[in-house]
Design a protein around this nucleic acid. Sequence first.
DNA 1: TCTATTAGTAAGTAATAACTTACGGTAAGT
DNA 2: ACTTACCGTAAGTTATTACTTACTAATAGA
Lengths: 104, 104
Amino acid sequence: MNSQLAFNALGDPTRRAIFEKLQHRPMAVIDIADGLPISRPAVSQHLKILKEAKLITLKTVGNNNIYELNRDGIIAMRNYLDQFWDDALTNFKALAEQTEKEKK
Amino acid sequence: MNSQLAFNALGDPTRRAIFEKLQHRPMAVIDIADGLPISRPAVSQHLKILKEAKLITLKTVGNNNIYELNRDGIIAMRNYLDQFWDDALTNFKALAEQTEKEKK
DNA sequence: TCTATTAGTAAGTAATAACTTACGGTAAGT
DNA sequence: ACTTACCGTAAGTTATTACTTACTAATAGA
């Protein structure tokens, strides 16, 4: 429904990079940070935002926090875009018919 | 394919507001700006970003620049998310099989 | 032709967001 | 118990980006 947070979250290139890393497999924070040009705490901050946007989830195993993709958030965004375009089409069609009438 | 610009563009709440305004009907800049809490030039700047992201197009009619949604950009984002999740599933399945093998 | 309307760009400022370092807390291993 | 490894949060700084005002250009209409 409210995919506002998700769009905000994926608006940042670094968060998209993290998101795409998790596409390969669930990962601990330290592994996510590895290779990225920013510090581990910065990664943690990004993860928090992605989590709040319901794009990822977290499970704790020992003292590793394993993050993985969350289907719900991804599907929500997809649905938003689908619905968005559907509604737009409906509106445009109604608009076309109305201006057609006004010609007469 | 490259929906990077699109995700950046829709990362901003104001641009999403503009985007959703255009869902109702194509609109001139002045109409888009009307009701928004920012100046018209600011709106122009946002429109430029949305246009470069291929989320909207523009046609000039006399003095008016009429902006409207661009299906291509919207579909591109949708496809990205679809493909993204598909690939994730494939990866996770392969991963599960591999760790299954390693148990033996 | 003169004026009003529409809109994009430039330059500088204000607001926001991303980052770093420092710290504390918990779990695992010796 | 002590040390090491992993991680999140806080506070402050830096960098980005969103915004305003001022300007210019083009079309429409009187």
